[in-house]
Amino acid sequence: MSYAYLFKYIIIGDTGVGKSCLLLQFTDKRFQPIHDLTIGVEFGARMITIQNKQIKLQIWDTAGQETFRSITRSYYRGAAGALLVYDITRRETFNHLTTWLEDARQHSNSSMVIMLIGNKCDLESRREVRREEGEAFAREHGLIFMETSAKTAANVEEAFINTAQEIYDKIQEGVFDINNEANGIKIGPQLSPSSQKSSSGNPALGTGGGCC
């Protein structure tokens, strides 16, 4: 399938905060209450549209347990966006955010867009982290912030798409050098801008080198 840009994302955060469920809700539009453990990394992809441009999101979902950190880190590199997830019903997952953030910043490129996500907002009665705390953390560290529910799908689309929008804006502003793929952005293999709309399902992809 043809696309104008490909953005690489990573999803990080403590084990059990709902990273895989967010991905599944976004790519398959369904919720699986019992989701198998992620061992290492898993891959998901979906096409979205931003300002009439087809954008493919290549998303890497990572295992949350500390033991896996050295392995999952190799996927941080070359990511344009990151979803940093905590669970609003478990305070400790919020407390670990600083470590996650330092780790992400250290092993990725400096212009990576980071979206802070307080997941499981459907479980209001069990809430341990106030919304304002999430907002404050995001403000302090220059992140975008949202509360989501992978279960009800609330804000899930928005979380992924707003991150892409931010990346797209940065491209327009010239912050991201799109010719340097280490930024996690790739220009799509489309033949020409006019062929975008009719190109879905076209199997002959990758043949036209007409980027830029």
Partner: peptide, 14 residues
């Protein structure tokens, strides 16, 4: 550096 990890890693690891 290669910013893409070796392609087989994600699968073989698991």
């Amino acid at each position: 550096i290669y910013y893409e990890p070796p392609l087989i890693n994600a699968f073989t690891m698991q």
